[in-house]
């Protein structure tokens, strides 16, 4: 539950931040910064998944020591 909540948060927070950011900036130069925003979201999403995998490995390392 906590994990899925965090996942949703990771994806939504940048969108909310951008909604607050200056509309003029994201629309400037042919809206190129909205593409940058999409790329940032994509990167963060993959990072979040890798971070969860990392936690899985950590859990196994801890179990191994016990």
């Amino acid at each position: 539950m906590k994990k899925s909540f965090l996942l949703i948060l990771t994806l939504i927070i940048p969108i909310l931040l951008m909604a607050q950011a200056s509309q003029d900036f994201l629309r400037s130069t042919g809206k190129i910064y909205s593409v940058v925003a999409a790329l940032v979201i994509m990167f963060l999403g993959i990072v979040f998944y890798v971070w969860r995998l990392d936690k899985k490995v950590k859990q196994m390392e801890d179990d191994w020591d016990d």
Binding site: I15, A38, Y49
Partner: peptide, 22 residues
């Protein structure tokens, strides 16, 4: 399947941004 689900959710999120500005 899991990484595909991540890609799919990111597809929805990036599409949402694209929709906002077009």
């Amino acid at each position: 399947n899991m990484i595909a689900i991540v890609y799919g959710l990111l597809g929805l999120a990036t599409g949402s941004i694209w929709a906002r500005y077009t």
